[in-house]
Amino acid sequence: MAMIQVKNLTRIFDVSKPWLNRVIERLPKAMLTAVSDVSFDVEERTVYSLVGESGSGKSTIGKMAVGLLKPTDGSVLINDIDLSRETDGGKLDKARSDIQMIFQDPYASLNPRWRVREIINEPVSARGGNVVGLAEKLLEQVGLSSLDADKFPHEFSGGQRQRICIARALASEPKLIVCDEPTSALDVSVQAQVLNLMSDLQENLGLTYLFISHDLTVVQHISDKIGVLYLGRLVEEATPDELFENPKHPYSQMLLAAAPKMDGFGREIDPPQGEIPDPINPPTGCAFHPRCPIATAKCSAERPEMRVVRGARVACHLAE
């Protein structure tokens, strides 16, 4: 059984103007579908990545996975427990302590007035757990020194702060870590340190990652499986090798062709056409059809179902 089961997950935000403005300006209610009917499984001890451009719904899925946000429809099961519907408090507590989240901004996510020791121990001490020597042990584990426990966050560089965030996430011995752009604020040489650390920990501690990133190169490097999102919909799911060598959805193809290549000296590409549509009024049928070079009449009429195409799952009428 998969560790995470995401089933027909949908999240709609009400982004209407205030009631009075709507009445005066005669505006209808505006509903934004951030995540639309997304389904995927994450196997235990694997790294599953969600990629997509800004606004494609990555973070919204991540927040629903850790229970920070309720689905409008569908569900997320973590080890068969639905965080937003489970009523047994004990089960819920256990499930919650198995999940941690790491965010993009290591500056904003650390309380500047707390010492590193308090920051790392907090998730455990809040549950009344034993924290003697815990922060020191974890600091060593993430490549810092146990002496750092007495310092404050501002005394560390960006990469070191992200290590502190990782140490805090590890404190409650989670099985699953949802990482939302954990290295996007870091320089590449520091990003390499953090990615290597994350891989080591995953292997040594048997962790499962739901990894969120807009950076294709990072995702290619770290993942066992990748889901590509476009306008809140999962359009393709494949292994990194399959996806990068042989992308099957026209959007994946466009995205991969547009990404800069280290050996692309003087490369002249036809850049992608058009822009991502307004999520409040998404296109009918396949959301990608207005920009798709091979779209047919069926594409604008009917939303494609996910189906298996040569070892990948693809939501496209024409992929083969």
Binding site: G159, V188, S189, Q191, A192, Q193, N196, Q220, M262
Partner: peptide, 24 residues
């Protein structure tokens, strides 16, 4: 050289990225 080695693009297929220790 370190900068190149630490970009995931350049290290295709390697399990670990090359890293430069420390920071600027």
């Amino acid at each position: 050289d370190g900068l190149m080695g630490s970009t995931p693009l350049a290290s295709k297929g390697l399990k670990r990225l090359r890293q430069i220790s420390g920071s600027m």
